[in-house]
Amino acid sequence: MRKYIIGVDVGGSSIKFGKFDLSGELLEKWQIRTDTSNKGDKILENIATSIKDKVKEEEIKGVGFGVPGPVSNNIVLYCVNLGWSRTNLEKEFRKFLTDNDIIIRVANDANAAAAGEMYKGIAKGYNNVVMFTLGTGVGGGIVIDDKLVEGVNGVAGEWGHIHVDDTHYFKCACGKKGCLETVASATGIVKLAKYNLDKYHMRSPLRRFESFSAKKVIDNAKNGDFISERTIEESMKYLAQAMANLTLIINPEIIVIGGGISHAGQYIIEKIEKYYYDLVEPFIAHTNFALASLGNEAGIYGCCYLIK
């Protein structure tokens, strides 16, 4: 009987599934709503039911999970968005399975996305990959010698909380100040833009809006608005600083940039490289930079890779 791998990307509002053959080809994808009521106590049962409804009597080799929280040895340490505290996901999920031979693997969702890009995305062919996801926050993952790096407490790849800023000192959601996330995420770019609007008494299209998005700042920067340009330059300088520090520790073959900010394309990479090489030379002459290519499917591909 033909075997399949199921990738499960668990998010705070929806759960994405992918059904793969053993070569990693995506055969089918679907999603369900995440039920976070009662501290998410129905999530795993709902996932098992959805998988059973889709695969029927077909044989499953394994199920890979990506979850929004730190993971170590298949144990989820906590997931605030799901309502989970410390959870042995493998043990708990097996309660809903009849086949004890099914492999179960669990990773942080950003780490899974990094693995996905290495497995079937823009970083395919590279064995040492670092990924930055620039969205509401800043996350990412590390793959070294084809293996995900989680760290002893599952927090490897939490780039968003690297300390980089002693100037603006915006408060981070983690409670600290100066985190990369406060100046290089979508929300961080907006904070920087508002700071610069107050600092520089110059005309800017941004002044017409009571509120605006990071995309608006990037679009105006591309069109030559001083305030917006200043904001993006500062933001990407902080990001380049974090990337340079990681390069001198890990020395990856490629740095992949994903998340909503990556939609700005080569413009963002050019800004990063402008500052990055000043910080890594003379030790590093060239680093491959690339925009993530799998989009919202990176997670499920990475979850498939966990089983491969």
Rank of each mutant, 00 (worst) to 15 (best):
N251G: 01
V106C: 01
I272T: 01
G140I: 03
S211T: 15
E58C: 07
A290Q: 05
N100R: 14
Y119V: 00
G62L: 02
I43R: 02
N111M: 01
I218Y: 13
I272K: 01
I6D: 00
A113G: 03
Y4D: 01
R2D: 15
E28C: 08
A244K: 03
F65C: 03
R230V: 07
D41A: 05
C304N: 15
I227R: 07
K171H: 12
A292V: 01
T182Q: 11
M131F: 09
T133H: 08
E233S: 14
D145P: 00
D109Y: 06
E92D: 14
A214D: 06
N73K: 15
E90H: 08
K176F: 11
D145Y: 09
Y78M: 12
R33D: 11
G125I: 02
A264W: 02
Y119T: 00
N223G: 12
E45Y: 13
S14Y: 10
S37N: 13
V155G: 07
D35S: 06
E233K: 15
L97A: 04
F20I: 02
L192H: 12
G139Y: 11
I189F: 12
H286Y: 14
E234G: 05
D109T: 01
M131S: 14
A115G: 04
G69Q: 11
T36G: 12
K176V: 12
L82A: 10
K191P: 04
A48M: 07
T187M: 11
L97P: 00
E229V: 10
L306G: 03
I51A: 03
A221T: 07
G258A: 04
I43L: 04
F212S: 00
I268P: 01
I227M: 09
N38R: 10
H201G: 07
A114T: 15
I6N: 01
V106Y: 03
G154D: 04
L148W: 06
E25S: 10
L27G: 10
N251C: 01
V55A: 02
E150L: 13
C172F: 13
G116C: 03
M118F: 05
F17D: 00
T247V: 03
A184L: 12
P252R: 00
N127W: 03
L291P: 04
E234L: 15
E233C: 08
V71P: 00
G259F: 05
A123K: 03
E229K: 15
I60A: 07
M1L: 13
V149N: 05
S72F: 15
V8C: 10
A214G: 15
F20V: 01
D278W: 09
R203K: 13
A292K: 02
K91W: 06
M118S: 04
L77S: 10
R2A: 15
G18I: 00
